Simulated assay, not measured.
Amino acid sequence: MTAVAAPGAGETLVGTVRRLAGAQKGATGAPAWSRFVNRPLGRVLAALAFHAGLTPNAVTALSATWTASGIAILAVAPAGWVTGAVVTACLVLGYALDSADGQLARLRGGGSPAGEWLDHVVDSAKNSSVHLAVALALWRLADLHPGWLLVPLGFCVLAVVHFTVTLLNEALRARHGARTRAERTAERPGVLRSLLVAPTDYGVLCLVFVLLGAPAVFLGVYTALALATAAYLVLALRRWYREMEGLTR
């Protein structure tokens, strides 16, 4: 992780945000929400945390708290517009804080293996539990056919596979001397690609929960995201497998 230059005396919050933006990691492979919304929002939160004297692990804990709160509300509260708005707000803030912890680490001189480990633990928990919470929310709908519960359960499997394979790809690339994502930071993919892979973005999933007040609409959009993620993963797995084959040649 590349550290950001030390601040000057009396640096303002705006100055910290600008300094961090200048050392922002590249956008290689980033979907639209993560690239254009979540990362800039995380940058502001990282600067706020920096001036408040918080550590990256403390920000990770805040991210986990907000995300867990949103997932818990989704799992137990009646479906409705207010519930959807609260769940979305909690998840969006939790996701922004998830971006902020790494950016704060750069401001403070670089991250640690323990901090990266903690961040991945939180990510792995949220990626699966959010879909299990959707299953519980749908289960409480009296007029919904039980077969629809297979959608969030299948989406949960897709999310776990996607997250696990992404981490495994990076580990194998590093082991065999191939360029990792972190080493391709100078690349700047086009906006079109970011938009095409947007359905796979966790941030887009967070936004879908504002539709909880209209369960049929929510379920339709949620199912569409699941299908889009499945299609993306099928294509990506084939490409990644070929890449892994090439690592030993």
Rank of each mutant, 00 (worst) to 15 (best):
M1W: 05
P7S: 09
A9H: 15
G10N: 05
E11R: 12
V14M: 13
R19Y: 01
L20V: 03
A21P: 15
G29K: 06
S34F: 12
S34D: 11
N38L: 14
L41A: 12
L41K: 11
G42W: 00
G42R: 05
R43D: 08
R43S: 11
V44H: 03
L45C: 02
A52Y: 06
T55I: 10
T55F: 02
P56H: 02
A58I: 11
A58V: 15
A58Y: 04
V59A: 10
T60C: 06
L62S: 09
A68H: 12
S69H: 14
A72I: 14
I73C: 04
A77F: 02
P78K: 01
P78G: 12
G80I: 10
W81V: 09
V82I: 15
T83F: 10
A85G: 13
C90E: 01
C90A: 08
L93W: 08
L93R: 08
A96G: 11
D98P: 06
D98S: 15
D101R: 03
G102Q: 00
G110C: 02
G111N: 04
G111Q: 08
G111T: 09
W117M: 15
W117L: 12
V121H: 07
S128F: 03
V130N: 00
V130P: 03
A135Q: 00
L136F: 13
A137D: 07
W139L: 13
A142G: 15
A142R: 13
A142C: 15
A142I: 13
L144K: 09
G147F: 08
G147K: 06
W148D: 03
L149M: 11
L150K: 07
P152C: 04
G154T: 00
G154V: 04
V157H: 11
L158R: 05
A159W: 10
V160M: 07
F163H: 10
T164E: 03
T166W: 03
T166F: 02
N169I: 13
N169E: 12
E170V: 03
A174V: 14
G177H: 12
A178F: 08
R179E: 12
R181I: 13
A182H: 10
T185D: 09
T185W: 07
E187H: 13
E187Q: 11
R188Q: 15
G190T: 11
L192E: 15
A198H: 04
Y202P: 00
L205K: 09
C206D: 12
L207V: 03
L207C: 09
V210G: 00
V210K: 01
L211C: 11
L212K: 01
L212G: 04
A214Y: 08
P215L: 07
A216D: 14
F218K: 02
L219R: 09
L219T: 08
G220T: 12
L227K: 03
A231P: 06
A231G: 03
L233D: 05
L233C: 01
V234L: 00
L237S: 07
L237H: 00
R238C: 11
E245A: 12
G246D: 06
R249E: 05
